[in-house]
């Protein structure tokens, strides 16, 4: 089965619900994420659905370098998500602070606050990079599933 077919099959069985959260970003990554959902890129064909609440989300997609103002809320949102949960850091700021690394009001990256499962770099992360990143994450999740099933 081709990679895309595998992913689409997996997604149909377990359509991931995504919560998007901006931790003080400039908005470029957020907009590229929404653009990825528009027909041209169509992230939704992977069954990805944007949800409004942490309690139903499988994947937390975060942009931004994490400002002091938003740190606690980010932690709380992560805590409210049910297991199994995954976090994707979208954009260079979310990965490492980006140009804001060293600025006094930022933590310089999502993984300074909560564990991150996947990093999608780019300034901003383009819709294509987002799709690539989501595809890789879903594949690695599928591989984890298979490993579990085969009893290793």
């Amino acid at each position: 089965m081709s990679l895309i077919k595998k992913i689409v099959t997996w997604a149909r069985i377990k359509s991931p619900w995504i919560l998007h959260f901006n931790t003080g970003a400039c908005n470029a990554c957020d907009i590229e994420l929404i653009a990825a959902l528009t027909p041209r890129y169509d992230l939704e064909r992977f069954g990805v659905i944007l949800k409004g609440t942490p309690r139903h989300a499988d994947i937390l997609v975060c942009s931004g370098p994490v400002t002091k103002q938003i740190e606690d809320r980010l932690r709380r949102i992560y805590e409210q998500m049910p297991e199994p949960k995954f976090v994707v850091a979208v954009g260079t700021c979310a990965c490492s602070g980006g140009v804001f690394d060293g600025c006094y009001n930022v933590d310089s990256g999502i993984d300074k606050v909560i564990p991150v499962s996947a990093y999608i770099p780019g300034c901003p992360a383009s819709p294509k990079a987002l799709i690539d990143g989501v595809a890789k994450l879903l594949t690695s999740l599928e591989e984890k599933e298979e490993t579990k099933r085969s009893g290793r």
Binding site: G24, G64, T67, Q69, I70, F100, C103, Y104, N105, V106
Partner: peptide, 8 residues
């Protein structure tokens, strides 16, 4: 909430 300290 998106005050990053850019001017500094």
């Amino acid at each position: 909430y998106n005050h990053r300290g850019i001017e500094k």
